[in-house]
């Protein structure tokens, strides 16, 4: 079920503050975050966030198209290189 509109989108508070700070200071430094469940908000556009994937932080450059999805969707957690090919 979708989240109720009354509550607004979910974003971790600390991250939100950092995003606002980064936006106003115009310093384009990478913000590290573990909060994969946070929503990508319009304020993040143009920033680079380092989203934890359980092992390391993957850089995510936020563009306009990404707004509304969750951060975790851009930081893949699985490492699948395919099955070994059967050589004849």
């Amino acid at each position: 079920m979708a989240r109720s509109i009354k509550k607004g989108v979910y974003i971790e508070e600390k991250l939100y503050k950092k995003v606002l700070a980064a936006k106003s200071s115009k310093k384009r430094e990478v913000i590290k975050t573990w909060s994969r469940s946070s929503t990508v908000i319009p304020e993040m556009v143009g920033l680079t966030l380092a989203v934890h994937n359980g092992k390391k932080f993957l850089p995510v450059f936020v563009t306009e198209n990404m707004v509304g999805l969750k951060l975790g969707e851009f930081s893949i957690t699985r490492n699948y290189r395919g099955h070994t090919s059967r050589n004849k």
Partner: peptide, 12 residues
């Protein structure tokens, strides 16, 4: 196409 371009899970 949009999903694939932003390189999100669904696009992948």
């Amino acid at each position: 196409k949009r999903l694939m371009e932003i390189n999100c899970y669904r696009g992948r």
